[in-house]
Every structure is written in C-alpha cells, then in structure tokens.
C-alpha cells in the first residue's frame, strides 16, 4: 500500500509543484506583502503600514459600502429571480425547454467586454434603448452613468442579468431532485400549489439556495468587471467603486502591492465571515 501511495505521489509531483508555486506561494506571499511597505525600495517590513491605512482610508470604506450595498440588494433579488426562473423551467407546461435553458445560461458564456459594451449602449443617455422605452411610457430619461444611484442600479441589473440564469440552472437541478410523489401526497392533503411551493419546494431547496447564495456572495465580494467596464472604473466619482476595483487600482495602477494585498485579504475575510454567518442562520435544526 505504501509503495502504491509513493507511486501515486510521484505521478502527482508535477501538478503539486505547479500548484505550490502558482497557488500556495502567492497566497502566502501576498499575506506577507500585506505587512510590508511596498512603495519604498527595497520593500521594508512595516506591520501596521497597510493595515493601519486601510482602517482610516475613506476610499476603502466607500468601496466596502458599495460592495456590501450590491451584496445586500442584488444577491437576494438575483436568487429570488433564479428560483422563479427554475420553477418555470421545471414546469411540464413549458415547450422548447432546452431553448430556454440555453437562453438563461448563455449570459455566462458571453465575453465580459462584449456584454459590458452592449450594456453601455443599451443604457446610453441619448441612444440607448432603455431610455427610449422609459420615454415611451412617459418616464423621463435617466442618466445611468453620471449619477451614483442609477449607476449602482445599472451594476446590479447587469450582474443579475449575467448570473441569474446560471443560478437558475443549479436550482433547477435541485428542483428535479425533489420526488414527484411528495407533491402528490400534498395534493391529496389538499395543499394548494402556492402553499406546496412555500412549505415543500422552498424548504427542500434550501441547501441548493444556500450554495447559490454562497457562490454569489463570493462573486460579489470580488466584483470587478461591471464597475470597471460599464460604469468606467467605478464612476461616477468612485460612486460604483467596489473592493475588487480598489484592489486593482492600488495593485496595478499605483503598484502599491502591500496595500492591495491587505485589501485582498479583507475581501476574502469578509466573504468567509458573511458565508459562515449565512450557513449558521440557515443551519438545519437538530
């Protein structure tokens, strides 16, 4: 058995080496970098330099506020929408189900730059179809890119469009694992479809919904593409800057790797903390 294990590990060595160099080491390294002042040459160890700055940095609090705001509003809306989409996809009355599944999933595989460009066009002040539609029902044009509230709404709409279908497909798999005879038993118990949904479907979907929520929380904590490409680097005036964008700005525009690493660890820590709180809140009663 020991020889077998040794052979297996020898075969695994190339992968483990690459994993260690490009995965484990950067994680450790960035943690160490977060305790160094990286804008001096050579870098010097200064434990409170970056973390101290983080605590007092208004830009960090702005990015944190924006990220949490998106998290609190967008994730529940998107998951709710995904559940509705999954239930519709699961309906035996639906024709061309495969087509809808593809359509709902397609946004995930569309290139980020292309989708961002299309969103910018659609929400453009003068030429966008959204403003034209709003106008046609008597609502004045909205300047989606120059005001903070519409810009934040735009980010949330875009993220929801992109990921709701993806979550719907995961939830659909959960829905299909609920045995049909449980619903038949409820039908014999004179439980309406709506009550079946709230008293049977939702509780049985809980593990899948929690899984989707955890994925979405992690994704939102890292949100970068939409504020970078759609609202032009967190505009207007940092109004949509997220932690992901702050990290990018500090690390790759200002080349302040120490501070960027501290932001990265803060993001990861928050994602873990929020996920743990959520898992605790939705745990199964003993």
């Amino acid at each position: 058995m020991r020889t077998q294990n040794a052979t297996a590990y020898r075969f695994l060595t190339p992968y483990l080496l690459i994993f260690a160099i490009f995965w484990i080491w950067p994680i450790i390294s960035s943690f160490l970098i977060s305790f160094q002042a990286t804008r001096t040459v050579p870098w010097r160890f200064a434990p409170t330099f970056n973390w101290g700055r983080l605590i007092g940095d208004p830009a960090f609090y702005n990015a944190l506020k924006n990220t949490l705001l998106i998290l609190v509003i967008q994730v529940p809306v998107m998951i709710s929408l995904a559940i509705v989409m999954a239930v519709l996809l699961n309906s035996p009355l639906l024709k061309a189900r495969g087509l809808y599944r593809f359509a709902f999933f397609a946004p995930v595989v569309v290139g980020e730059v292309a989708y961002s460009a299309v969103f910018r066009l659609m929400f453009s002040l003068d030429f966008g179809i959204i403003n034209k539609l709003l106008n046609s029902v008597g609502i004045p044009k909205v300047d989606w890119f120059s005001n903070v509230t519409p810009a934040m709404a735009l980010i949330m709409i875009a993220v929801t469009w992109r990921w709701a279908g993806y979550n719907a497909i995961i939830i659909l798999a959960g829905l299909q694992s609920i045995p049909e005879d449980v619903y038949e038993a409820a039908t014999l118990d004179r439980v309406s479809r709506l009550r079946q949904f709230f008293h049977i479907t939702l509780p049985l979907l809980k593990p899948v919904i929690v899984f989707c929520a955890v994925l979405s929380i992690i994704g939102t904590m890292q949100l970068f593409t939409e504020p970078f490409l759609i609202t032009e680097r967190g505009g207007p005036g940092g109004g949509t800057e997220t932690l992901g964008l702050l990290l990018y700005r500090q690390g790759f525009r200002s080349l302040n790797f120490g501070y960027a690493s501290a932001v990265a660890y803060t993001m990861a820590g928050l994602a873990i903390a929020i996920t743990l709180v959520q898992l605790w809140l939705t745990r199964d009663p003993k």
Partner: peptide, 26 residues
C-alpha cells in the same frame, strides 16, 4: 388517502408535522 411505495414523507418535517401537515394547511 394513499400510501406511496417510496413513503413520500416530507423530509424536512418531523413525524408529527408530517402527520398533521394536511390538516394544518386546511
């Protein structure tokens, strides 16, 4: 009233809740 081959119990409910579910809902 029907008894199913796979029992069709509500997995997230206790035995008591399983028994009373239909009556409570009505």
């Amino acid at each position: 009233a029907m008894v199913f081959q796979s029992y069709a119990l509500y997995p997230h409910m206790t035995v008591e809740q399983n028994l009373s579910f239909g009556l409570r809902m009505n």
